[in-house]
Simulated scan of single mutants.
Amino acid sequence: MRIGLCSLVLVCLLVSLSVAQEPSPKVEARETGFFQTLATEAQPKMVKVFGAGAGRVDSFATGIIVSDDGKVLTMQGVFLDGREVRVVTSDGVSHPATILSRNRVSQMALLKIERGTPDYFELTSDPVGEKGDFVVALTNAFKVADHEEPLSATAGVISLRSSIEAWLNKRDLAYAGELVLIDCITSNPGAGGGAVIMGDGRLVGMVGKVINSSETNTRLNYAIPSSVLLEFVNGTLKEETQKQTANAAGNADLGIALFKLGGRSDPAYIDRVKRGTPAKKVGLRPDDMIVQLGGEKIATVKAYEQALSKLRPGEEIFIIVKRGRELKRIAITPVEKKK
């Protein structure tokens, strides 16, 4: 009997503790309602961006509308190098997009669609948000949305404001400039170009390109500040870092000969790969079409020649070629051109 009484008292005590620790339904509903309202109000200012992709190369990203005449900011990527780039607005309508400008240092791209966009994010030269402030990141990570479906939302706080110069190798930048570190996970495929907003809906910045540390095998969750976005849209953002300016371009060679029957305006198809050259060593083949070299888009033979003239012997870069229906991203190190 004594054991039964003790058990009854213990059960009652546990139940009372459980009830005491359970959050108020009203408080929970209020917090959920605030988060949902914030994300819902931002959706019309967001877009999904789709382009070329094959194999491990993503064909999608997120974008933010930054003007009432259809200007959209997103992140650089091979998906922008296809024949067509499509922007899907929050109502599910797909629009062809024109690429207005790109910046290799910040890895941003400015697009435009022919549609009025009365809902957009205001860019400001003043910092938005401070360390410890609550933020929400809205992205199309993992391509969760194709049409009118809402983008995914992740909550977190601002951890730090800082700057960084992150390099994929000696030639190719991942990102260089100011950034806002956040503690919510945004370093996922398709998240680049997403919006990081305050609790009042103001834009803190845009989710940047994935930066992965080769030393710690960790990814950086960050946003490019609104002030940097404004400089890019206005055309005042610098195109080179101090590291790039200090090193002059060299007389580099990859060992590639292109088809030139139609002139320098033809696409950059490989005609011949010379023996014993960097191109031969990394497996480039005749009929591969070069679409990117050293971080620069290649649409023509002329564009390839210009990009090649900027390379430096001994510094590894990435070349992206289209082989059949696949896009292949290959590391290659130029050598000094033989005289």
Results as ranks from 00 to 15, higher is better:
94 S>N: 07
58 D>L: 09
106 S>P: 00
26 K>W: 08
337 K>W: 07
31 E>P: 03
159 S>A: 14
339 K>T: 07
45 K>C: 10
70 G>R: 05
153 A>K: 11
3 I>F: 09
312 R>V: 13
156 G>W: 06
323 R>Y: 00
126 D>N: 13
250 G>N: 01
157 V>P: 04
170 K>C: 12
112 K>R: 14
158 I>S: 10
7 S>V: 12
74 T>F: 01
22 E>S: 14
287 D>N: 15
160 L>R: 15
327 L>E: 02
318 F>G: 02
94 S>Q: 12
15 V>A: 11
150 P>N: 15
135 V>N: 08
218 T>M: 10
164 I>G: 04
107 Q>P: 00
273 V>C: 01
87 V>F: 08
295 G>I: 00
290 I>P: 02
125 S>I: 08
272 R>F: 06
55 G>C: 02
182 I>W: 05
62 T>G: 07
133 D>C: 00
42 A>H: 11
176 A>N: 04
97 A>S: 09
18 S>L: 14
82 G>F: 07
219 R>Q: 09
34 F>Y: 11
179 L>V: 11
37 T>P: 03
97 A>H: 11
221 N>F: 05
59 S>L: 07
326 E>C: 00
177 G>L: 02
163 S>Q: 14
65 I>G: 04
212 N>E: 14
178 E>W: 08
76 Q>M: 06
142 F>Y: 13
281 K>E: 14
117 T>G: 11
199 G>L: 08
233 V>I: 07
13 L>H: 04
33 G>D: 09
10 L>H: 01
171 R>K: 07
78 V>P: 00
231 E>I: 06
313 P>K: 06
74 T>I: 01
57 V>S: 09
123 L>S: 12
269 Y>Q: 08
225 P>T: 10
339 K>G: 06
289 M>P: 12
25 P>I: 13
146 D>R: 11
8 L>A: 13
333 T>E: 02
179 L>C: 10
216 T>A: 03
184 C>R: 07
337 K>P: 01
30 R>G: 01
4 G>D: 03
120 Y>L: 10
19 V>K: 13
46 M>Q: 08
150 P>K: 15
80 L>S: 04
302 K>E: 15
87 V>A: 05
148 E>C: 05
166 A>Q: 10
179 L>I: 14
309 S>T: 06
228 V>S: 15
239 E>A: 15
284 L>Q: 00
178 E>M: 08
11 V>S: 11
325 R>T: 12
336 E>F: 01
64 I>W: 03
185 I>A: 11
308 L>E: 12
227 S>G: 07
266 D>W: 02
231 E>Q: 13
171 R>H: 08
41 E>M: 12
65 I>V: 13
133 D>I: 00
84 E>A: 13
82 G>N: 06
142 F>S: 05
14 L>C: 11
125 S>E: 15
76 Q>C: 01
17 L>Y: 05
241 T>R: 04
216 T>E: 08
270 I>V: 10
228 V>L: 13
9 V>D: 00
70 G>T: 05
176 A>I: 04
202 R>F: 01
22 E>A: 15
102 R>K: 14
219 R>K: 11
71 K>C: 09
130 E>G: 15
202 R>W: 02
30 R>Y: 10
269 Y>C: 06
63 G>T: 10
281 K>Y: 05
11 V>C: 11
246 A>C: 03
75 M>Y: 00
121 F>L: 01
321 V>N: 03
81 D>G: 07
